[in-house]
């Protein structure tokens, strides 16, 4: 008998507002272990706000949020959650650190104060770099890599603490189409081979829906949550959430090539 997949993220009646206007209202969402959920929505629909709430970076005014079955304010095992943020180049490109050093940071939270990297930890870093096929670059300065390569390194940093849930906020922004596709292939592999649960926010609805297992549509609250196939075959949703538009743009790109 198959064990019932457990719920990793549970959001109930969440409301978040900046000063006067609510960005998220009575939002409900649950993410099952092992799923690859794509979160889509127009600009200003609250995608990044929802991610920030889940990560505990901002506090919602109302509603309940649980990670791995415990309420967010009690949750403290952040090594189970990996996060790759919107701007790949949010850090100073000239920062004098190697790829290896950057990925090591992913272990710092787990190690805690007064503890140092041991051989085992260094192996974990190299393993994470191998997973994203960047192990050959371990000694390179992070600033010398291309945007796509940097984003893979940041994935490795998120993976090194062996998280159960990986959250990605617009990870392919500013990355060329080929690198982006390679990036999605990597995410699919992580989901299928390692059973990693993924929450992916992306504008690139057309490409993304080819990779994810589930789609959730957000505009202040969740308007649809189902399989990628249901989303693609529902004409209302795909037009509302820009599927067709993105799709057409991509077809054009293909023709142009």
């Amino acid at each position: 008998m198959m064990a019932k997949a457990s719920t990793i993220v549970e959001v109930n009646n969440l409301t978040y507002q900046y000063t006067d206007r609510p960005v998220l209202q009575n939002l409900n969402l649950s993410i099952e272990e092992g799923s690859f959920l794509g979160l889509v929505g127009p600009n200003g629909s609250g995608k990044s706000t929802l991610i920030k709430c889940i990560l505990g970076l901002i506090k919602p005014q109302a509603g309940k949020l649980s990670l791995f079955g415990s309420e967010l304010h009690r949750f403290d095992d952040w090594s189970k959650v990996g996060y790759v943020s919107q701007r790949a180049n949010r850090f100073n490109a000239g920062f004098p650190a190697t790829v290896f050093e950057v990925v090591s940071m992913g272990l710092f939270g787990q190690l805690g104060l007064f503890r140092f990297m041991k051989r085992n930890d260094r192996n974990k870093v190299m393993q994470a770099l191998k997973t994203v096929e960047m192990d050959a670059y371990a000694k390179q300065p992070i600033g010398k890599l291309s945007g796509g390569q940097q984003q893979r390194v940041l994935i490795a940093r998120a993976l090194v603490s062996e998280p159960t849930l990986l959250i990605l906020d617009e990870p392919t922004v500013g990355i060329d189409a080929t690198s982006a596709r390679r990036f999605y292939d990597l995410l699919r592999k992580l989901n299928q081979d390692q059973g990693l649960t993924l929450l992916l926010v992306s504008h690139d609805v057309g490409t993304m829906t080819k990779y994810v297992t589930n789609v959730a549509c957000l505009n202040k609250s969740i308007h649809f949550h189902g399989t990628a196939h249901e989303f693609e075959t529902n004409p209302n949703l795909s037009s509302l959430y820009g599927y067709d538009v993105q799709h057409i743009i991509h077809e054009h790109e293909e023709i142009a090539k």
Binding site: L55, G56, L57, D76, W78, S79, V81, Y83, S85, R90, F91, F95, A97, E101, V102, S104, M105, G106, F108, G109, Q110, L111, L113, F114, F116, M117, R157, S161
Partner: peptide, 22 residues
Amino acid sequence: FVFYKEWFFLSFDEEQAAISGL
């Protein structure tokens, strides 16, 4: 020596450092 890794992380990426519980 003691806080090397924490200060390193914070100077590289404050948001990520906060998420990892620093």
